[in-house]
Design a protein around this nucleic acid. Structure first.
Lengths: 269, 269
DNA sequence: CGCTCGCTTGATCTCCTTCAAGGACAGTGG
DNA sequence: CCACTGTCCTTGAAGGAGATCAAGCGAGCG
């Protein structure tokens, strides 16, 4: 068990400075850095990925970038804002499959899956980068190490989905909520977005409810109970973790499934 | 909407004959055939995969082949029997992530993930084939088309996990149960294991309960309700679908997420 | 024959849903 | 500057799907 400070103290390099970085990095660089957080990426491969050209696009809040049935020709990268992957059930019920923070690559699976069976949309105004499949295919053919990390990234996604399955199937509401907070916090930290035990998490309670498979009402009540413990606070789009060990304890959170490289982060065994 | 017969009539070739095939096919052939069910596999690539050498191993019921924390050196193929992927929660609660029928390849993700974050075990006495990672790596390096299908296979796994997430988060018990039956039935059919609207599904009610995140008691009651509709029967390890359209309707089952090649099977749009 | 494992049934409890409404706040337009 | 409106959060009360606890039953098996 490690305290909150060690988590925050682990400098993730470029993102240590407040607000720095984002605008300055190309789309390719963002992807390269993301891949490097899952394993060793040789300098030459890093450079090759970083050199990829990407189109930047701004999405208004609550608009989709990929839709059920689409056959995408580009891979999406989050540059700022927040994306979510979701489906709408037969009775109009929305299930969110995952959230995607800046620097993450939500749609790598479109490289080898023929069509989307879900939607990818912006929660808040979001800037994304688009890299053509063709460019990535070339990397895959020519750069085994980069290929390995791209592939691994899609596998980690799958591991996260499985964890969401466990969470929503088994855990009572307060544990599930704490668990979601843990995951988003660690992922934010891995992306260099945690600062002073806080990170941005610009969701509404309804989004969280649809992620956990709960109602907004019950999510609200559960949230209040969590707040009263003083362990964590989530207000106006800001997640603040006051007591990381205790939050982990509540959620029984084990970050292994995220397969992050940095052992500092979350006490990988 | 299509009737049950068209589903069953679609000959999947080698498995049309009762009980035939299994013993005769090499481990490599099984993998090659499985990959081919997700896309075009050129003859040369098919041959290369089919030529892979695999060790055959028999697992007693309820024994694990891969364990949380393991770093596998081989890929697992199901030759006969039934595997399940699962984790045990902090309070000893088991969550099953997926079941694996004969001809399926449960553990392809171990190729590029460093260690297991879950368990893979036999439900009933199961024969598996083991192909070394090294051999697969060679295929991946030398055979782009085979690589594409291997990768795709892992992506389809992820899509299935997401569907399980939706099922367990949103659907009431009777729909969830029907949905599981639908999925296993279609997958069995894709593997050539459906015969006369029946397939083997050698689970106990407790396994199903742990897959759906329900209790065994409630699974039992839900099952009885489903039985009384006359749409489907599941007894002594045999799943029989009497009215496929109606079962699909109950579950609101849309097989798109399985990304199967054969359009006959399940009415892909 | 007795034992274990899996299935079944009944009664009670509780977590979460549903329905309904009030309140805080920001944005907009007069 | 203030009413107006929409979005999101909050609160209350009642109902239900599924959990929990407990026990009986049937069949395969050593």
């Amino acid at each position: 068990m490690r305290d909150a400070n060690s988590l925050l103290a682990s400098g993730q390099g470029w993102a240590g400075r407040p607000g720095a970085g984002q605008g300055m990095n190309s789309v390719g660089e963002t992807l390269a850095r993301h891949l490097a957080s899952f394993g060793e990426l040789p300098a030459a491969d890093f450079a090759a990925v970083a050199a990829l050209k990407g189109e930047v696009r701004d999405l208004p809040r609550q608009t989709d970038i990929l839709r059920n049935g689409d056959q995408p020709t580009h891979v999406v990268l989050v540059l700022s804002g927040l994306l979510h992957r979701y489906t709408i059930g037969p009775e109009g019920k929305r299930q969110i499959h995952s959230f995607y923070l800046p620097n993450e690559a939500p749609s790598l699976e479109t490289l080898y899956i023929d069509y989307m069976d879900n939607n990818l949309g912006a929660v808040v105004p979001t800037r994304v980068g688009l890299i053509s499949h063709d460019q990535i295919y070339r990397i895959i053919d020519e750069r085994p190490e980069a290929r390995k990390l791209l592939w691994r990234q899609t596998l980690v996604q799958a591991a996260i989905f499985r964890q969401w399955l466990v969470r929503n199937s088994n855990l009572p509401a307060h544990m599930a909520l704490a668990h979601l907070f843990c995951e988003m916090f660690v992922r934010a930290d891995a992306a260099g977005l945690v600062e002073d035990r806080r990170c941005s998490l610009p969701l509404t309670q309804e989004y969280v409810a649809d992620a956990l498979g709960l109602t907004a009402v019950h999510t609200n009540r559960t949230l209040q109970a969590l707040r009263e413990t003083g362990v964590v606070e989530w207000r106006s789009g800001q997640l603040t973790v006051y007591d990381w060990p205790k939050l982990r304890e509540i959620a029984r959170f084990d970050p292994n499934y995220l397969h992050l490289r940095s052992t500092e982060l979350a006490g990988r065994r």
